[in-house]
Amino acid sequence: MSLAERHTPPDGPARGRPRSEAVERAIIEGVMRLLEEGVPLAELSIERIARTAGVGKATIYRRWSGKEELFVDVVRAAEPPDPPLPGTSMRDDLVVLLERVRRRGLANRSSAILHSVQAQMKSSPKLWAAYHATVVAPRRRTGLEVLRRGQENGELRTDLDLELLNDIFVGPMLLRAVLSTDADLPGDLAEQVVDTLLEGLRPVSSEPRRTG
């Protein structure tokens, strides 16, 4: 979904969307430019952002309720996009989900903006809560849904706590990709994590049930 689609009312005129998206892109790029110049998040006022982006403050407030919501979109724009899930099996979907975390870790290391913003976010409870609600929580729900489908399809034992299991899958990748800035992130790391864990989590007696 584009930035314009997220902020444009559903019944708004379609012809206004390209222009709206261009304005939003200019605002987000304005924030990134200020961050590249070393301006801390705490010192980024809406007035300064508007001046840098060449728009009025009202233009920003029509699209974002405040700095926190805007900064979340800035971080999302700097991160690699979320890839679509293949839907062929629980195993394949889990590999894609963990690969997304690995790529985010690589982006953190290569993007000064992303690294700086994410470090500063943790010192702002309001901003961190907004990021968690709009980015982290939906990704967690996706992971839980993949595991739930795996149980329904017979790819996963039914006696497992899915909330805990989701943490067990994501935890090793988060440790390497986000918490340890110098840990090795080989291209097949997602497959290694998923396949190692699934060895002890699949039903013992049978092949996964086919659906459809």
Score class of each variant (00 low, 15 high):
residue 3 L to C: 00
residue 201 L to C: 14
residue 145 E to N: 13
residue 150 G to E: 07
residue 175 L to S: 13
residue 93 D to I: 10
residue 208 P to A: 00
residue 11 D to N: 09
residue 23 V to G: 01
residue 123 S to G: 05
residue 25 R to N: 03
residue 196 T to L: 01
residue 185 L to F: 09
residue 155 E to G: 00
residue 116 S to Q: 10
residue 85 L to Q: 06
residue 76 R to N: 01
residue 105 G to L: 05
residue 41 L to A: 12
residue 196 T to Y: 06
residue 57 K to G: 05
residue 209 R to H: 03
residue 134 T to G: 02
residue 78 A to H: 08
residue 134 T to N: 15
residue 33 R to P: 03
residue 33 R to G: 04
residue 171 G to S: 14
residue 118 Q to W: 05
residue 82 D to Q: 14
residue 1 M to Y: 11
residue 87 G to P: 06
residue 17 R to K: 13
residue 199 E to A: 15
residue 183 A to L: 08
residue 95 V to E: 04
residue 120 Q to M: 07
residue 194 V to K: 00
residue 176 R to I: 08
residue 77 A to E: 07
residue 144 L to C: 14
residue 74 V to M: 09
residue 85 L to A: 07
residue 169 F to P: 01
residue 24 E to G: 10
residue 2 S to Q: 06
residue 116 S to T: 13
residue 150 G to P: 04
residue 184 D to M: 01
residue 125 P to Y: 08
residue 5 E to F: 08
residue 85 L to N: 04
residue 134 T to F: 11
residue 159 D to Y: 00
residue 130 A to K: 13
residue 37 E to Q: 09
residue 211 T to H: 10
residue 169 F to K: 03
residue 144 L to H: 00
residue 57 K to Q: 15
residue 147 L to Q: 14
residue 159 D to W: 08
residue 135 V to C: 12
residue 37 E to S: 09
residue 140 R to H: 00
residue 75 V to N: 05
residue 207 E to N: 01
residue 51 R to W: 04
residue 97 L to S: 14
residue 181 T to C: 05
residue 149 R to D: 09
residue 132 H to V: 10
residue 177 A to N: 08
residue 155 E to Q: 07
residue 46 I to F: 05
residue 68 E to C: 04
residue 52 T to G: 02
residue 143 G to C: 14
residue 70 L to R: 13
residue 48 R to G: 09
residue 74 V to W: 07
residue 23 V to P: 02
residue 25 R to V: 03
residue 152 E to F: 12
residue 201 L to I: 11
residue 182 D to F: 04
residue 176 R to A: 03
residue 168 I to H: 15
residue 8 T to C: 06
residue 80 P to M: 00
residue 92 D to T: 05
residue 88 T to R: 01
residue 18 P to V: 07
residue 116 S to R: 13
residue 3 L to E: 12
residue 147 L to D: 07
residue 175 L to N: 06
residue 186 P to I: 10
residue 189 L to A: 05
residue 145 E to Q: 15
residue 22 A to E: 15
residue 92 D to A: 15
residue 212 G to R: 08
residue 185 L to K: 06
residue 16 G to Q: 12
residue 48 R to K: 05
residue 187 G to L: 14
residue 159 D to T: 06
residue 104 R to P: 02
residue 55 V to D: 02
residue 76 R to P: 01
residue 12 G to C: 09
residue 140 R to W: 00
residue 79 E to S: 11
residue 100 R to P: 04
residue 132 H to A: 11
residue 84 P to V: 03
residue 100 R to E: 09
residue 40 P to D: 01
residue 30 G to K: 00
residue 58 A to D: 15
residue 97 L to I: 14
residue 145 E to A: 15
residue 101 V to K: 09
residue 138 P to I: 12
residue 45 S to Q: 05
residue 204 V to M: 15
residue 149 R to S: 11
residue 1 M to R: 08
residue 108 N to A: 04
residue 117 V to Q: 04
residue 118 Q to M: 10
residue 80 P to D: 03
residue 178 V to C: 03
residue 91 R to K: 12
residue 121 M to H: 12
